[in-house]
């Protein structure tokens, strides 16, 4: 019994090229790689059927053990038909992808990219909810739990903002964008 070295070497080469090609991003190359892999597997199946020098098929005067095992050949036929169908379908898909996107490359999943970019901060779940300490809150100024209503009766409601002491109501209106009460500093804004 001898091993058919040519067949095995060809199989190895086909597998190597096939694996190299399916790692490409170009669809046509991926398809070629898949075809090579399928054919390499057919050779592997053929190699299980028997060794070189056996009769290819059974006839009446062939002794048992002197002819090739027919089952792997049947398996190869089936596998060829299947890979034919898959190849035809892949060609259809590649053509369609070309028609649609004018591109022969595997494209990224847009939704996947979007989810990956989404910050882990979720506006609804993770926002800091202002702590309310009073039963009858007036205006909420900040989210730090301090509110105007904390101020005792008669005292001027003031807030410390950036080193200045401001009237609470003025500060509240200053927080709103476009407030007229905010006068821009003279040196600012490149004027």
């Amino acid at each position: 019994m001898s091993v058919n070295l040519t067949l095995l070497t060809a199989m190895g080469a086909l597998y190597a090229c096939g694996i190299y090609l399916i790692l490409e991003r170009s669809l046509t190359r991926v398809l070629l790689g898949l075809m090579l892999l399928a054919n390499a597997t057919n050779l592997l199946l053929l190699a299980t059927g028997g060794y070189a020098g056996l009769a290819p098929m059974y006839s009446k005067d062939t002794a048992a053990g002197e002819y090739n095992d027919p089952l792997p050949q049947a398996l190869i036929l089936t596998s060829i038909v299947i890979s034919f169908a898959v190849t035809a379908f892949m060609l259809g898909i590649i053509y369609r992808a070309w028609v649609l996107a004018r591109e022969d490359e595997i494209q990224d999943d847009a939704e996947d990219r979007r989810v990956a970019k989404t910050p882990s901060f979720d506006l609804e779940d993770d926002s800091v909810i202002p702590v309310e300490t009073s039963e009858f809150p007036l205006t909420m100024i900040g989210s730090d739990g301090q509110s105007v209503s904390d101020v005792p009766d008669g005292a001027e409601a003031t807030v410390n903002v950036a080193g200045r002491t401001l009237d609470a109501e003025a500060a509240a209106s200053e927080e709103q964008p476009g407030s007229l009460k905010v006068t821009p500093p003279k040196e600012g804004g490149g004027q």
Binding site: I22, L37, T48, V86, R96, A97, Q107
Partner: peptide, 23 residues
């Protein structure tokens, strides 16, 4: 089509692995 390409290629590779195992 974009999703189909991934699916087909992955499935075909797994089928080839299965066929190699059978052989």
């Amino acid at each position: 089509i974009r999703a189909g390409v991934t699916y087909v290629v992955v499935s075909v590779v797994s089928s080839v692995l299965f066929l190699i195992a059978i052989a």
